[in-house]
Amino acid sequence: MLENILYGASGVENGLIRGIVGVIATLLFVSLNVLFLIWLERKIIARIHVRYGPNRAGRYGMLQPIADMIKLLTKESIVPKDADKITYNTAPWVAFLFALLPAAAIGIATGLISTNISVGLLYIVAVSSLSTIAVIMAGWGSNNKYSLLGAMRTAAQSLSYEMPLVLSMIGIVAIVGSLNTQNIVAAQSHAWLGIIPKWFIFYQPLAFVVFFSAVVAEMGRIPFDLQESESELVAGFHTEYGGMKFAMFMFAEYTHLVVGSALVVTLFFGGWYLPVVSGIFANMGYINYIVQIAIFVAKMYVIIFILIWIRGTLTRTRINKMLSFGWKTLLPLALINIVITGVILSL
């Protein structure tokens, strides 16, 4: 009985131990990446801005995220007088939770996945759209007009970008015939002539454009960072937050960045497969795992770099333009993509 609970009835797939290890591993993977990302983003943005960026704490300022965290942890926790206490205080944790949950269904190597559920993609989409709730909670709970406007923008934004995001995935799902992320990556593991990888970006370029735009919008980054646009709404939904609660929002934001880019890599860039390299290490046991993780993380950071680059280059869109872009451009493109994919698959 106990063995069944711990190791699962059908081998190691559903056991409690595997579950706990998976949760800790996911948390660790995301947290470490977030800590590194905070430094990386500040450094890259600084170079784009012709500045130096953090360069005091540790070598190349690499301890800056830790210094920031200590600072934020030791700050006084202030709650605005007329805030809705419960909503206000729980919002940062809800934001963090919903940002982290999608990571559970994304693998970083063959079999290295927290919960290998068959409807992985559906789960990711469902859970990630919940993070809007946290933003609305924060906006409403703060009892601040800027926060409220930011939250309203977020609601409108995620409504109009959720649809193209989901629809742009359908082409891939149709090709693979599965919603499982492991299967999706496995379907991209081959190569033409042994060199050109069969990644879905080559099969679904239109879907990639739509998906990438929608992911940027979902993350709330420039050019779509309207929910917290500094020059208009001060800090948007987290205007009233300070100290640890603010840190949680920042953490959630960077988690979105990690998870979003991991999703892009999984769906369009062949996950942990790289032609030639993957073939060499294919039968080397643990070394193969390490190589796969390295490939995955490397691809992820290429995507993250592009996202940071975009942030350093573009200006902010305005809200009405952004919404019409979502409904009038991305949504039709996603639908056209589905039609084209369907026609080609049925031929």
Partner: peptide
Amino acid sequence: ADLGAWTIMM
């Protein structure tokens, strides 16, 4: 800066 282009500000 007001349009969100921090690079241009620098």
